[in-house]
Amino acid sequence: MLELLILSYIVASLSGLLVGSISMILTTSRSITFGLTLLHSILGGNILGIYINTIFNLAVPVPLISTIVAICLSIIVGELVERGFPEDISIAFSVSIATTMTIVFGYMSSQLSSLAISRAWAYIAGTSAISTLEDLFKIALTSLIVLPFIHLFYREFKYIAFDEDGSKAMGLNIRIYRYTFYSLAAISAAILSSTIGVLATHVILAVPGVLSLKVFKRFSIPFTYISSIGIMILGYYIAGLLKIPPSGGIGLVSILTFLGVVAFGRHS
């Protein structure tokens, strides 16, 4: 039992690392709305994956399908913005596609099997409080892919967020860097949704970045990671105490932290 608990906390810490790596860039580049869009795409992709696996009796990893769907919809947003469409309209277009997928394939899956619906719910609310070795493997592998890339291109992501025109003038290929980040964020969000759930990922995505920008601007990178890991571990602990899924605990801690930041911001 203790081993399973330790495993859950290791999964929580690694999930925190992943969230931290994308949260900072999403917050500073004012792309939180995009991040939330990404999660709509992930949910649509998850439901599509479940439907495909159910109807064709396949075992294609659902996170793979959701990652592909999220990357495709992100590229649609990016291309629309590049072609002069306002960002909010481009995001709304992408969300409408993702939501339609969720509704249509969710309904079709429910007609096929009740098991499909319970699997879909697991992606929304997250898996059980006890993490598995498979969860650990997925999160560790994703971290190994995402974290080095995020830090390799961190300066570019930061420059582009700070001054897009100036970055273009210096010769940075904004489109390539933007799509690289979208892809890394999509992979992270897809894997997180299969462990802590789409809703919890939704809630936690902005909090570490906002917290570090408001409270520890000077050391924003380490603080984003520390706060992100802290929220995840505390979320798992509270979930254990209240006997609710980890996503519920993470959600509670995130909301309370966010309220704290708002209160702190008002007084500082």
Partner: peptide
């Protein structure tokens, strides 16, 4: 060529 953009286009949320 060196370029100095309009300050209004700078994102001041980025800690730099």
């Amino acid at each position: 060529v060196g370029y100095v953009p309009q300050v209004i286009n700078i994102n001041l949320h980025v800690p730099m």
